[in-house]
Design a protein around this nucleic acid. Sequence first.
RNA 1: GCUGCUGUAGCUCAGUGGUAGAGCGCGUCCUUGGUAAGGACGAGGUCAUGGGUUCGACCCCCAUCAGCAGCCCCA
Length: 663
Amino acid sequence: MSVTIKLPDASKRDYEKPVSCAEIAEDISPSLARAAIAASVDGKMVDLAAEISDGTHELRLLTSRDAEALEVLRHSAAHVLAQAVVRRFGRDVQYTIGPALMDDYQYGFYYDFDLPRPLGHEDLETIEAQMRKIVAEKIPIERIGLPVAQAKARFAELGQDYKIEMIDDLVRDEAVEAVSLYRQGDFLDMCRGPHLPDTGRLGKAFKLLTTAGAYWRGDENNKMLTRVYGIAFFDGKDLKEHLDRVEEAKKRDHRVLGKQLGLFMLSDEVGPGLPLWLPKGSILRMELEGWLRDELLKRGYQSVITPHIGKIHLWKTSGHYPYYEHGLFPTMKTGDDDESGYLLKPMNCPFHIQIYKSSQRSYRELPVRLSEFGTVYRFEQSGELSGLTRVRGFTQDDAHIFCTPQQLEAEIESCVALTKLCLETLEMNDYRVRIGLRDPDDAKYVGSGENWDRAEQNIRNVVRKVGLDYTEEVGEAAFYGPKIDFVVKDCIGRDWQLGTIQVDYNLPERFSLEYIGADNSPHRPVMIHRAPLGSPERFIGILIEHFAGAFPLWLAPVQVAVLTVSDKFNDYAEKIRDDLRAAGIRTDLDNSPEKIGAKIRKATMAKVPYMAVIGAREQEASTAAVRARREGDLGAMAVGQFVDALKREIETKGKHTLLNKGG
RNA sequence: GCUGCUGUAGCUCAGUGGUAGAGCGCGUCCUUGGUAAGGACGAGGUCAUGGGUUCGACCCCCAUCAGCAGCCCCA
């Protein structure tokens, strides 16, 4: 028997007998042996202690420089956490699962426990202290392969019912006969690994962050466990950087900035999830919606306006009612039967469908594109509400396109282009595209399989044609059809769906929609439900975070702050303000008895794009000393010149600015 | 909805079983100052709401409401 090891530098090593990865590392260099965390053999991650026997194998020794090694570190951190919790609670704790998190913005690992009592802040400190002790003890982490029956017996001795359940599932789903366990001193867990060679290698750069509830197996019908979240790195510097970055990101939280900048408010008196737009926030909406309205007109959309409530049967016909009753505000009853009530609308489509049906449609009219900024109401679970991104009353930049099957893909394509235009105009380039498909096993999806297959194929054809990078996700479709979603992350890494394009063969059937074709006989149109922003509420919430409240000039609630050096120049400053306002520039005057430095600071913190400083020199020369939010003093300009430059920057949405002149 | 944490002035927060404080903001006055904080004085709070324990509750207990984190959900 002989073993040949191929290393990443293409060198080879031969051994006469089975050899562990750790031994090979030692042979190469003692420093590598010390730095090694785990290994990759033929592309598979293993422990350093893993033995390689017979044959030729490719080996990579993983150190803290390898991305995979961080995952091992965090996974072991989860085990150390579990060991600490077991030491604290003994047989009263059941430990379940504890993975590493590599893509999460805040957290690096967690472990879910079934505990006799809730954990508080002090508990986290105690547990973290115990973890540091376990690290100091440098307990070896050993892998043990055991037949299923023996493994179950061991966990039965330890009173770990969840582990037994997990083993049973592995036997059922994967027909395993043996499982791998990891032991570190007094702690035993079932795990695929790999892990650090000993607990000492976890080091000091870890921290427990928070506790939260989490359902066992993610099912709300199961018991809620206690999840402990933490973060771990190889280097204390990385840990600090991470914590600082999360802290910094929280400063751009739209809920914080919305309050600071006076954009919107939520009131206990009004109700949860029902935002009130303050004057400055209303500007954002008016500018954004106004711009989009113009773009829609250019693209042949027609504007419609529909009411906020309608008869309940509309949503019974559409299919919303039976599946989403829990998400609706309670029905307004007008009689004793179930049919005669009104519903606060959860979506606009039944109304737009009625408008489509209001006259006989010829194929010559199609596509009919009916658009509306329609406000809808959904009774979201209280635990879901969050600032502007998840609310109970929100507007959709909605439209429904009714077209022939032949026109469908071109229409989808133009919706994709419009959505991209929205994101690009606002410099939001950090998004992903998700295609939501139905889950054939889920009963909530209406309509025939053929309709779904057709619609899914239409969508794939378009995204391939326009070359979008996308992922397909089963179970993410709307109940009536598949969709293309544009998904962005908020300041703490949570995903939010913004723009959406949904293909629907089903509602036209349910509402018996028709058009008269060239053959003089009725045909069924296809519908597209689409919202390029998704919802102005959510979109602006994300937008606030994207710009950290420092909006481009065309959106800025206050575009220019006129600041007087002393009140001797109030009259001239008022004239400048009035001139700017007359030119359509949103301008505020600060003639308070403060020094100019304080006024500049105040306007800067309010994130006003431009300031016009007015003193004796400016008054004499009929100029304004212009200052930009970020760049500082730009020197004096004639007022007319300033206005022209501002207008140009506004009209070009920032492509030509006072600074770059546009090129 | 579930689990946990939190709720004190407009905002951010400190605080104590014996009826409350800071900074910012706000108001008045002084200062008339040239590119990120001039000074003085002052007004502002049923300590989320409702019960309970106590001689006495902002503080302890319970409930409700709301916020935050996570889970589940999301047309």
